[in-house]
Structure formats: structure tokens, C-alpha cells
């Protein structure tokens, strides 16, 4: 315990002596991981707003009424059972005319005059279809459109595809930038360690002379890099978390789009990013140690 306190004390002394360079290294880790975490959050938002959009509905098939050449309610239920057997389809939710009217009233709750003039019997029943994979939406849309009992097919596939493309671009940009900045962070941390070794060359020299073990000499420098990496990562996680929280409050005013990311997402990825920051810090330290520790006279 005493040794650990001594080693931590030594690494804090290192950080204090190299405050400016250490701050630069922390900022590099912070910016790199903020970009990486930002990309992850945007990706998650897009996922929630595509896969989870309309409670998993990818396609809505509005059905014809019997007087339009369509099926009656019992026939529509049978048709639902047929569609659910298609291999591209995951689930099908049948909304009858009464359900459609309830939904209408919910959506236009703020416009009672509209509800008043709408005839419940005019609203069509529909099938809400969730696909096995969003990539299959064109096939299913075509099949449904060709069926004479279907009045109209609406698909969210195009929007989902567009959002997926945006998501991919953002991911590539975010991860690419964070990779470059992550490497810069490793080099910067390595430089802070080199400077720390230079600043403490007399101490290191004396430590070697009096028989300090190699790990004992290295640990304060490793801790210094570790602290820089972890502090940068924690700041990045906090920044993105706060930004997402503000987005969430903004999202309350935007209908149909969810900006609410679950806390478990932040916790899980926060832990991963802090571990990643720690790894970057230790890698930078090891690089600096391998380059400069042997140069100190012993």
C-alpha cells in the first residue's frame, strides 16, 4: 500500500511538472474519443429512428373495404395470417377500422373539428408489417401492391435507406477521425512521457543506481499515461452524455423522432471508451519508455 501511494505520488509530480504538455495529451484523447463516441451516439439515434421507427413497422398496407372489392373483417384477418407466413416478414399487426379511428383520434387530438367531421367507417383497416431485414422492403412492397385486396402500400424503406447511408458516412468519418486523433494522442502521450523522463533523469539515474526494479521505475510513467488517457476519455463520455441529454430535451418538441438514448447505452459504451482511453494512455507511455528510458545513465 505504501509503495502504491509512493508511485501514485511520483506520477502526480510528473503530471504537475509537465502540466502544459499533459493537458495537450488529455485534449487529444478527449477530442478523439468525443468524435468516436459522438459517431456511436448518432448511429444509435439513427438505429432507434429506423429500426425502431413506428414501433418496428417497415411497411403499412391499407386494405380495401368490401364495397371496393376488398375483404370483410374476417377475411382481412385470414389475409394477415397469409402475409405473416411470407419468409421476408417478421411480424404483422392488423389494425381494423375501429383501431384506425382510435389511432386517428390520438394523432389529431389537438384538432377536435377534424375528428368531428371524419367518418370512422371511411378509415381503412391496415396491416403493419415488420420485415426480417429492411433490405427486403422492395420485394414485399411489390407483392402487396400487386394484390387486388390492397388499396395502398406505404414503405419507410427509402427513408431508412437514406438514414442508413448517412449513418455509414458518419460512422466512417467519426471512426476515421478518431483513429487518426487516437494515434496522435498516443504520440502526444509518448512525448509527455519522454519529457517526464528527461525532467526526472536525475531521479531515474539514482533509482537505477540504488537498485530500484525496472517495473518500479516504469510504473509512475505508466500511471501518468494512464491518468491522461482516462481523464481524456471520462471528459469525452461526459461531454457526449451532456450533449445527448440536451438533444433529448430538444427532442420532446419534435414529433415522430426519438432523441432519447437509453442510459444503459451510455453506461456500456462509457465503460468501453474509458478502457480504450486507458489503453491509449498506457500504449503512449510504453512507447515513450521504450524510446527514452534506456538513455538515462545508470
Amino acid at each position: 500500500m505504501g509503495r502504491m501511494i509512493f508511485l501514485i505520488g511520483e506520477s502526480l509530480v510528473n503530471l504537475r511538472r509537465n502540466a502544459l504538455v499533459a493537458t495537450g495529451a488529455i485534449l487529444a484523447v478527449f477530442i478523439s474519443l468525443t468524435l468516436a463516441f459522438g459517431a456511436l451516439v448518432v448511429n444509435e439515434l439513427l438505429r432507434l429512428n429506423t429500426i425502431g421507427w413506428q414501433q418496428g413497422t417497415h411497411i403499412i398496407a391499407f386494405l380495401k373495404d368490401p364495397d371496393q372489392g376488398g375483404l370483410d373483417a374476417a377475411g382481412q384477418v385470414v389475409y394477415r395470417d397469409q402475409v405473416v407466413d411470407w419468409e421476408e416478414v417478421e411480424t404483422v399487426h392488423y389494425v381494423d377500422k375501429a383501431g384506425a379511428y382510435e389511432e386517428f383520434k390520438e394523432i389529431f387530438a389537438s384538432r377536435p373539428e377534424l375528428i368531428e367531421v371524419t367518418d370512422p367507417l371511411k378509415l381503412p383497416a391496415s396491416l403493419r408489417i415488420e420485415l426480417q431485414s429492411i433490405d427486403l422492403y422492395r420485394d414485399v412492397q411489390f407483392r402487396l401492391s400487386a394484390d387486388p385486396v390492397v388499396r395502398e402500400v406505404r414503405s419507410f424503406g427509402e427513408q431508412i435507406e437514406q438514414l442508413s447511408t448517412i449513418s455509414r458516412v458518419l460512422n466512417v468519418l467519426g471512426w476515421g477521425l478518431s483513429l487518426v486523433l487516437g494515434l496522435s494522442a498516443i504520440i502526444l502521450i509518448s512525448n509527455t512521457i519522454s519529457l517526464a523522463i528527461y525532467a526526472r533523469r536525475n531521479e531515474v539515474s539514482v533509482m537505477k543506481l540504488v537498485g530500484a526494479s525496472n517495473w518500479f521505475i516504469r510504473v509512475p510513467f505508466l500511471l501518468e499515461g494512464l491518468i491522461e488517457g482516462v481523464v481524456g476519455a471520462v471528459l469525452a463520455v461526459l461531454t457526449v452524455w451532456l450533449a445527448a441529454r440536451n438533444l433529448n430535451s430538444l427532442g420532446e418538441t419534435i414529433q415522430l423522432i426519438t432523441l432519447n438514448i437509453p442510459a444503459r447505452f451510455f453506461f456500456r459504451w462509457g465503460v468501453v471508451l474509458v478502457l480504450f482511453g486507458a489503453t491509449v494512455g498506457v500504449a503512449g507511455s510504453l512507447l515513450g519508455l521504450s524510446r527514452h528510458l534506456r538513455e538515462v545513465d545508470s
Binding site: R3, F6, N202, E203, S205, V206, M207, L209, V210, G211, A212, S213, F216, I217
Partner: peptide, 21 residues
């Protein structure tokens, strides 16, 4: 001498024992 200027006399001497645990 190779003494550490940031440490006192006692700390310089103690350093040799601290670093070997």
C-alpha cells in the same frame, strides 16, 4: 554527488530505501 535538488537531505537518503520497497 548525484543528489536530488528537490528533496531534503533526509528525503535524498530515504529515497534509496523507498525505491526498493
Amino acid at each position: 554527488y548525484k543528489l536530488l535538488s528537490t528533496k531534503t537531505v533526509s528525503e535524498n537518503v530515504a529515497f534509496a530505501l523507498e525505491v526498493i520497497g
